[in-house]
């Protein structure tokens, strides 16, 4: 209660495909940037997804990505998380994640939420404009679109501690 001042959530961006990889989220040619903010314009530049426009308003407005299985597979590059962060996206909701990407999210104090396929289907069915809010304490997310639906998710206590601490460096500094 009150110990998590940061708000998690925002307008949803649907990326309705499995196996979206790190090279699609941020291509390797931008890994020469030494500042996170410089990655900002290149978010999802190489994403292969029908009708997806990397310059769209829905991407500019997005606070949450809703996607399918194995999101963030491939490279270990934390740039794939930072490019979301600097674009004000701090939550990804997916059927599943690649291990390194998921860990990178929590290590940065961001949230990777796993929900079953039917829950993702239902969020996507809420319409084109869906607003998502995350209650970290209660481990629930609420999606508001044409109608409103709530879903419980599992957040393991360590991942929750990382979110509360603001990331792994702060947590490790205190505990190790």
């Amino acid at each position: 209660m009150g110990n998590n001042m940061k708000q998690f959530g925002g307008p949803a961006l649907f990326l309705d495909r499995d196996d979206i990889n790190t090279d699609e989220i941020i291509p390797a040619k931008y890994l020469t940037e030494n500042s996170k903010i410089d990655l900002k314009p290149f978010i999802l530049e190489d994403l292969t997804l029908k009708d997806f426009d990397p310059n769209s308003e829905s991407l500019k407005q997005a606070g949450v990505i809703v996607t399918r299985a194995n999101f963030g597979c491939g490279s270990s590059r934390e740039h794939a998380v930072w490019v979301l962060e600097v674009n004000d996206i701090n939550v990804v909701v997916a059927e599943s994640f690649a291990r390194i990407f998921r860990q990178n999210m929590f290590n940065c104090g961001m949230i990777a939420i796993e929900l079953p396929k039917d829950a993702i289907d239902r969020i996507i069915s809420l319409g084109d404009q869906v607003d998502i809010s995350v209650d970290v304490d209660q481990s629930t997310i609420t999606a508001k679109g044409d109608r409103e639906e709530s879903f419980e998710f599992f957040l393991n206590s360590f991942d929750k501690d990382l979110v509360m601490a603001g990331g792994w460096l702060a947590y490790a500094n205190k505990n190790y």
């Binding site: 590059r77 990331g167 792994w168 490790a172």
Partner: peptide, 15 residues
């Protein structure tokens, strides 16, 4: 393989 934050903590703390 790990991300840069894990690497950073590894460099600093060895964990």
């Amino acid at each position: 393989g790990v991300g840069t934050t894990d690497l950073e903590v590894g460099i600093l703390k060895g964990v």
